[in-house]
Design a protein around this nucleic acid. Sequence first.
DNA 1: AGCACGCCGACT
DNA 2: GTCGGCGTGCTC
Length: 735
Amino acid sequence: MPEQAPTFHVVHVAVHTPVHSGVGTPLSYTHSSPLPAGCLVRVPLGTRHLLGVVWPAPPDETPIDPSKLRPLDAVMQGLEPMNGHWQRLVGFAARYYQRSVGEIAMAGLPPALRDMTAEQLAKRLQPPKPKQRSKKAAAALAAAAEAAAAPPQAPQAPQAPQAPQAPQAPQALIALSAEQQSVCSQIEQNSGPFLLYGSTGSGKTEVYMRVVQQALDASPQAQALVMVPEINLTPQLQERFEARFVPLFGAQAVVSMHSGMTDVQRLKSWLAAHTGQARIVLGTRMSVFASMPGLQVIVVDEEHDPSYKQQEGARYSARDLALWRGHDCGAKVILGSATPSLESWHASDPAVGRYLRLHMPSRIGAGALPRLRMVDMTQQPKKTVFSPPLLAAITERVQKGEQSLILLNRRGFAPVLFCADCNWKSDCPHCSAHQVFHKGDRTLRCHHCGDTRRVPHACPGCGNPDILPLGKGTEQLEEELERLLRNVQRPDGRPARIGRIDADTTKHKGALEEQLALVHSGEVDVLVGTQMVAKGHDFRRITLVAAVQPDGALFSSDFRAPERLFCLLMQAAGRAGRDASYISAQGSHPEMWIQSFEPQHMVYQALRQHDYPSFAQQQLRERQDAAMPPFAFQALVRADAKTQDAAQAFLRAATDAARQGQLPHLDDVFLYPPIPMTVQRVANVERAQMLIEATDRRALQRFLHAWQPWLHWVRGHPSHKSIVRWLVDVDPLTL
DNA sequence: AGCACGCCGACT
DNA sequence: GTCGGCGTGCTC
């Protein structure tokens, strides 16, 4: 008998390489045995050794001579392959956002796994000694298994089944309001997706938890993904989920996923989700790619929040991908917000009917919604920062021992320094932007490139020693309030204390928590901050919120600016009067103050009525008339180059290529001419962009897909050598 | 994207 | 004489 010739199998592997690199599609390797798609492997690429995912063979298979292929290094043993749902999600995201499969796949894996050898992984996977299963846990599991209906799809068996840690007695559930009850049963009876529209304090979190619990109780394999915009801004949500579910399912059952975790923590969480040991994953946008074989529920809290859109690398929208993923794997998707994105609001319009809109209008345990107080700044002395009525109101709150929150979306002392003699301005030498004056450390700082320098003692243009700060930042507001409230006393006789929270005062680890503690303990009477304090934080004693200069967004060229402003002010208003018992004990009414030169603007009028629906309706009508999203679909192509001319020339050449190349759907898309970006130059790189618009999403997708190689081709042309980079942003949030 | 290779300026 | 700048080109 002749010895059997060794057999080689060709496997396709997606690795982290960009689409337009010549190696943007999955690469071929040989292995002694066939490997299923979704398998993690290590492969050689040039001189490097990388993690990759085995991928199905492309349909347009060009047969390759296996003798020219390199063998893969190793299979990452001990891990179930990522299932078909995960593969489809990654494949879809790669196609939709014009990236390579490997880039998306690797972005979803924990960094520690990416540079781990097969041996290192095997060592980490050694199961710790299983703990003795407590009687209670066993009983709970048995009960759960009994109650379990057949799961809609067969999830993979968990890798190393482990007994949950001895659970404590589950806490008694608080009774649901009739509203919550009705919403829960709607979610139970429908497949979704759902838009849960409910104001701050309406009890959305309790609804999320009920729906999650119901799914987890129904099957021991079931898993839930709960996404939040920024996890460190919502520690309350995490605490509540842990308090509810750790006693039920064990300490391993709730894991987090966000970039603030250490590599080891992230790996642990990821493995727990992948094996099914973790029942609930709580994470930021990256967690939409978590491998969760038993996924049954996806919650996207604060779904309108722009941080769901990744702004670097692969520019995906975790919210949109969550909807796709839920649809694909049969998980219920719940989007929640007090001020939904206009996209979601439109989709949940009963006449459109893509999502089921569920409304929770009541504010449980919170006081009445704050009253809106408009200050017409055209009637105030010029250059007023704190109008007399606002200052009087703040003073009164301090004297009553209540807290106020002053919002200004600009950190630093002044956005620019200015010489009245020679017109010198503190321009950044590297960017088309002013350097911001930070008084605390006497620096000028560019918020775009980070350039930091000492404040000059005299005007660099003419030597004039008198350079003036122009405009106001949070640092200056803090200083002015210190002065204005110097003689104001709190009920305990102590002078008013001003605090400030922005990116500058919280850059050190733990600083945010420290500052928040000062507010919670009542040390601080007036808190000045940027929009980072408008989100999430639960300030019980704040009864007044003021936006001192919100008008900027009204005149922005960005069509989404009014939406963002409304949402921010609505969220800010939600900070006031969160504790009904405190409010009634104080006998004061919470107030939201707005100083505006356009007090009649419809954004403010709608805010006065706390009327999101009519605001949304008006905005949507405008968008429809102007054929803008959600009634049209957009993509941006951006080019960075040494000169603005070169950047625009590249985009024009790409446009010409699209026209001459007779790309599909050329007639269904509109290619706008290239324009400089709002901040044209950053770190000595000139930036230009062009907008592509279509009324049909499919047409836009097909066009972009066909255009991609042409963009790469134009980039390689000798006349475009000075292009630093180019990128495509599908469904951009800012234009 | 990395990472080599490769060809020109300021240092032990 | 080397160290190191980043421009070009390749990776199954």
